[in-house]
């Protein structure tokens, strides 16, 4: 099963849930950090030296001998990544989305593609966990291609946990697409509830089964519970507010290691996720039978 951990609001504890769940699983699991702008899962795990792989996207390269400066490439490009005024085109690789349009429209077949570096993919190990992190170079703004490349490392048959970036924009969609289930982490505060609603709209649009983890239980009020109750959203786990948890996370330690009394929390979460998965499967079986 491929499970994504996401949240509308940042700082609700996505990474905390992902790493502790992965460790609690005990058997081999792939943990993918898809928050490629600020990957920091490795800070919570004692990892082996990462193997690095450079990731790039295809960007245009013009053969001056063939180009007659007709400017068709520049007129076509939606992203202003290539511009021409009767001379060899000027190319801005950082603007390019890698759609291949300029190459396809060029009447002289003067455009080919070369790879432009966007970041790194780092693979390392920590006990039962294989950690795969994408890391975007500073100043690069296009996360989805790198996220897709990180996800291409998923191995068939091995369970995987994907730590999504916060929010509901394209990088999040790129992460969630194709996963079997989503865990939305929230906190029982007005900000938490507001951002949870946005995230719920998103996963519903993507038609992925999901449940909610309420972190820092006890700090706010019960509006998150009322919302989940009304919408029929299962609450998979509540993590109590405990200052010791905040302190442990601030030091980059795992709850399941440092606070054994809380390791049952993540065992419960695992159990509830499996239950929800079973229910969804039965429901989809019934749907297809009808």
């Amino acid at each position: 099963m491929i499970l994504a951990v996401a949240s509308g609001k940042g700082g609700t504890g996505k990474t905390t849930v992902s790493v502790n769940l992965a460790r609690q699983l005990g058997s081999g699991v792939q943990l993918l950090d898809c928050d490629v702008e600020e990957p920091n899962t490795n800070l919570f795990l004692d990892c082996t030296e990462p193997e690095e792989e450079i990731f790039g996207i295809p960007v245009p390269c013009v053969d001056e001998a063939l180009c007659d400066g007709c400017g068709e490439c520049g007129r076509f490009c939606q992203f202003h990544a290539i511009v021409s005024f009767g001379t060899k085109p000027v190319i801005f690789p950082e603007m390019c989305h890698g759609c291949g349009g300029c190459m396809a429209v060029c009447p002289k077949r003067a455009i080919s593609e070369v790879s432009q570096r966007m970041g790194l993919i780092e693979t390392s190990r920590s006990g039962n966990i294989t950690l795969i992190q994408g890391r975007l170079d500073i100043g690069v703004s296009m996360a989805p291609p790198l996220i897709r490349a990180v996800k291409a490392r998923l191995q068939d048959g091995m369970p995987a946990i994907l730590d999504a970036p916060p929010g509901t924009s394209c990088p999040v969609i790129a992460t969630l697409r194709g996963t079997d289930m989503v865990v939305l982490v929230t906190e029982p505060t007005p900000f938490g509830l507001h951002d949870l609603k946005l995230a719920v709209d998103m996963v519903r649009e993507l038609r992925i089964p999901f449940g909610v983890v309420v972190n820092r239980m006890g700090i706010g009020d019960d509006r998150v519970y009322a919302f989940c109750g009304k919408e029929g959203i299962p609450i998979l786990l509540e993590i109590p507010y405990d200052r010791r948890i905040a302190e442990i996370c601030s030091r980059g330690e795992l709850i399941v290691d440092a606070l054994p009394e809380y390791s049952s929390l993540f065992a419960t979460l695992l159990w509830n996720i499996k239950e929800l998965r079973g229910m969804e499967r039965r429901a989809s079986y019934v749907r297809s039978a009808n």
């Binding site: 520049g74 992203f79 202003h80 990544a81 511009v83 005024f85 801005f92 603007m95 703004s141």
Partner: peptide, 13 residues
Amino acid sequence: QGAGIQSAETIAR
């Protein structure tokens, strides 16, 4: 993004 590029294209044309 690309406001500068577009302005420059406008000016060039």
